[in-house]
Design a protein around this nucleic acid. Structure first.
Lengths: 107, 107
DNA sequence: CCAATCAATAACCATCGAGTTATCAATCAA
DNA sequence: TTGATTGATAACTCGATGGTTATTGATTGG
């Protein structure tokens, strides 16, 4: 599971990659050519980025004739959401502990 | 704001750094020495990582004599939460659009 | 069948980033 | 005051990563 976090965070750490994912979330299914047209990098670069996103489970692809369509899998963001709420949870629980402590000291 | 995302994602992309932040969330205030004791890297490495986390707003520090205490600022995770829910939101809204379209076609 | 298009791969290059050791400034204890 | 400790900085190394161009394999249109 920490491995999952690693792959996810690293995949999203690159701005070009995040832009690709955002576009797929926003506009849905896209061919590599369409994605390349908007991206500020070459087609091979786009393909490589899509490969990284695929490894992280953030996108899926299907072949249609000679073109490949990619689509976002936002469900793959779940571990990221879990992690952030866990961090916030730790924080709050420590805060609660402090409150408990103060309450007890008050008695 | 995209710059904020960049700094945040990049700060959290490194496992050592994430481990430091997790520990600060879990256990609260820690000195650099205490953090170094648990980390699997040298003290200068820990200091550098803390510097990156600080740039991202994820930690704060205060001096106490000759030691420095670091603490987590989980509030800095807000843009990350916003981003993920926005991505999920795009997804659902596209799904709704599709439903609308299908409903209209049905008439 | 041939030319053209699409996307993935190969090969390469430059930069960045995480790690190290050495050192310095500041603080404290003796 | 001196010696030890704490943490930040400097200087460096090295591997990972993101970018490029060239090429190849598939597929389609004429």
């Amino acid at each position: 599971m920490p491995q999952t976090h690693n792959v996810l965070f690293r995949a999203l750490a690159d701005p070009t990659r995040r832009a690709l994912f955002e576009r797929l979330c926003r506009d849905g299914d896209q061919t590599v050519a369409a994605l390349t047209a908007q991206a500020k990098v070459s087609q091979p670069a786009v393909s490589k980025h899509l490969g990284v996103l695929k490894q992280a489970g953030l996108v899926r692809h299907r072949h249609e004739g000679r073109q490949t369509h990619y689509s976002a899998q936002p469900g793959a963001l779940a571990p990221l959401i879990d992690w952030t709420s866990q961090m916030a949870g730790f924080w709050e629980s420590r805060f609660d502990d402090l409150e408990d402590l103060l309450k007890r000291m008050d008695q």
